[in-house]
Design a protein around this nucleic acid. Structure first.
Lengths: 189, 189
DNA sequence: CGGTATTTGTTCGGGTCCAAATCATACTTC
DNA sequence: GAAGTATGATTTGGACCCGAACAAATACCG
């Protein structure tokens, strides 16, 4: 395992600005770089393989989830894709309009909607996924297989921490105070 | 260094679906978990410290960049914040309307616009950053300081790879083909 | 000096994104 | 079976988001 990699200019500046006061430096670097990496990877994938087939990142993720899981209830798709139910409604509509996914009523529960790939969607994924995976390999090109497992492992622990303890943490932080509604959002009619 | 962490259900399903064909498994796990972690962290931060002061993630990042770098040209702020110039124009307008940042013309180059924090913006960041950093520590709570450095190191290499070799890679992939314009976007007048 | 090319920030079209409100269907309880 | 509750998906308002088109200013070049 090589030692500490080069720190970015921004991180040095932050160190200088905040060096006096006490703060969690290593933890800040993780969060900052998670986000930088996510943006960089998304940007690269959208501008390489996805643009050519006219898919946004989110649209691709939704397709991927339905591809891997097979016909699924929309609530599960939204959960797995990491987007809200409301967003999924719009994205699914776009994909349906393009003939890549189809909706179906649940046989016994009239509230549920099932999503599945059309033949065209299935063919698209068989064609696009290998190219997508190639670029996943490209963006991680500076990491060995072992490095990849280590990084993925660390990230999974971050996800787990938030999923398992996040809600409680947010409750404790508010200390019974009102949860402060979002500024944007629907108003009462 | 502990061994492999528990794999998520989705990753197992993907393995089953794709196990037959050849693909880069460890690299896929890195990309998938980068994005999952980014969403989880953003969600937690927005719903804990940011909501209370009515800031979105992006608005906070922009404030943070201007706070750390001091008065800066907008192109650099956009670059550092990881958003496009066009998006920054809108976010900066929102922040200006709320009295947190101010614009100024560049003394010698009339094309440039400089962004800086107002006193109110400065005070807000002094108040909010410690709380933000607390939550950065929370989300990384399952990682040791050394783990954090390892993960941040790996992520920096991903960012570096895309920044240094991404453009060339995309050129090579297209092989001279037209870069396929975005479906959405402004049309010629 | 007079163009032409480049570099800025801004505008804009289409699309995402969240969470609150709302609509629709199921379940529960009397 | 009617009222009330729970659980779905959808609609909606405001904010983001990108990248192409654009306008303005600067840089380059003959």
């Amino acid at each position: 395992m090589p030692g500490q990699r080069s720190i970015t200019e921004a991180e040095k500046l932050a160190e200088a600005k905040l060096g006096g006061s006490s703060f969690r430096h290593d933890q800040m670097a993780v969060v900052a770089n998670i986000y930088r990496a996510a943006s960089a990877v998304r940007q690269h994938l959208e501008n390489s393989v996805l643009r050519g087939v006219d898919l946004t990142w989110t649209a691709f993720v939704v397709l991927w989830v339905v591809w891997i899981w097979g016909e699924s209830e929309t609530r599960h798709v939204a959960e797995e894709a990491g987007i809200s139910k409301g967003t999924l409604t719009g994205v699914a509509r776009t994909l349906e309009r393009r003939g890549l996914v189809q909706r179906a009523d649940h046989p016994t529960d009239g509230r549920l909607v099932l999503l599945s790939l059309t033949d065209e969607g299935e063919q698209l994924m068989q064609r696009v996924f290998p190219a997508f995976n190639e670029e996943e390999a490209f963006v991680t090109g500076q990491l060995s297989d072992a490095d990849c497992r280590t990084v993925a492992d660390g990230l999974r622990r971050v996800v787990l921490q938030v999923e398992e303890k996040g809600e409680e943490r947010r409750r404790d932080l508010l200390e019974g105070a009102a949860p402060a509604p979002r500024r944007s959002g629907r108003r009462k009619a």
